[in-house]
Amino acid sequence: MTAGPDTAEESPISTVSPLPSATLGGDSKRSLEQITLLLFITVPFLALVAAVPLAWGWGVSWLDLGLMVAMYFIGCHGITIGFHRYFTHGAFKAKRPLRIALAIMGSLAVEGPLVRWVADHRRHHKFSDAEGDPHSPWRYGETVPALLKGLWWAHVGWMFDQEQTSQHKYAPDLIKDPALRAISRQFALWTTVSLVIPPLVGGLATWSWQGALTAFFWGSLVRVALLHHVTWSINSICHAVGKRPFKSRDRSGNVWWLAVLSCGESWHNLHHADPTCARHGVLRGQLDSSARLIRWCERAGWAYDVRWPNASRLDARLLK
């Protein structure tokens, strides 16, 4: 795989100084933030649970379904292409308009501020499934009770840990960029935008409050909950089960049934074997919509120096 030299202006992973004093949330969670986080987790989850009987009894309109799917994949690709492959790992370089767009798209997923998300994930890779990993399912041991406790921790529990990853240590490049720092600090604004778009479109399309309400239920609450739990499943399920065709220093595995909903992220074993690779699903039949969109951005000239899979690197990591 090939890549040009990184620069402070072009690369999301270069180290620069001096740093601003703080970003949104800082390095510890206060009680108010923990309560807010609890609400953002439980309210959409309750909507997701209620969606099953509601869809069975009354169905879901094509408009609401379309809003849910569209907003889901906008946010999901914002996380997978933007927050993860670009900002965290520098799998490609991006022209500034694409960089800003990816930061906003990822923020619409309602998974936390950009700088904090990236800092957590870089720390995860440094200590993957070892002491220091913020969300390993093997945290408490390998017995069945310990693994069940660890799965809960990796899926949700770790987010309530008061001591957070140092953003200045793990994401200094993002803090240095004024635009990215502003987007990260404006997380509450982007959350509001994300939740308001579906009811606004639904209400205008049907010209009714009922249309706005059902669009909010499906396009905002259910969509956010589904995306949350798919993303968190990469932390929990994909580090506990799945096939491991490539050599990695942790327990990351491929979980095929999450591939479409995770936009290719659940081909997690290759990712941990070669973290800067722009494509995670590298074997035959492994769907990776994020890699496809990166390819389109590259052809349009918006992305460049993309670190595509290299046959010799893959062969060196493949378990014989």
Rank of each mutant, 00 (worst) to 15 (best):
P113H: 04
F87V: 05
A3V: 15
G242I: 11
H271K: 05
F217R: 10
A273M: 07
I294R: 04
P145E: 01
H84T: 04
P18M: 00
G281F: 11
N310S: 12
Q186L: 11
A8Y: 04
A259T: 09
A273T: 07
T42N: 02
L226W: 15
L19N: 13
H239K: 12
G301D: 14
V201I: 15
P198F: 10
V49M: 14
D120Y: 07
R295W: 13
R292K: 01
H239M: 11
D315I: 01
P20Y: 03
A154V: 12
D120W: 02
I79E: 03
S28P: 01
P5Y: 11
I104W: 05
V193G: 10
L24G: 13
P18Q: 01
I183S: 08
A311V: 00
V118C: 04
P198D: 06
A212F: 09
R181M: 01
A130P: 00
P172K: 00
S220R: 08
S290N: 05
H121A: 03
I81H: 05
G301P: 14
T7H: 05
W56T: 09
G157Q: 13
H155E: 15
L102G: 05
S289D: 07
A50H: 00
L283C: 01
F246P: 14
G75M: 06
G301L: 12
T7W: 06
V156P: 13
V118I: 04
L174R: 03
I79L: 10
T231N: 13
V230H: 13
H155Q: 15
L48E: 10
G141R: 07
V156M: 15
D305L: 09
D177T: 03
F83D: 02
I81P: 11
A273F: 11
M1W: 02
F92T: 03
A259S: 15
P309R: 01
G75Y: 11
L63I: 12
I294P: 11
R30E: 07
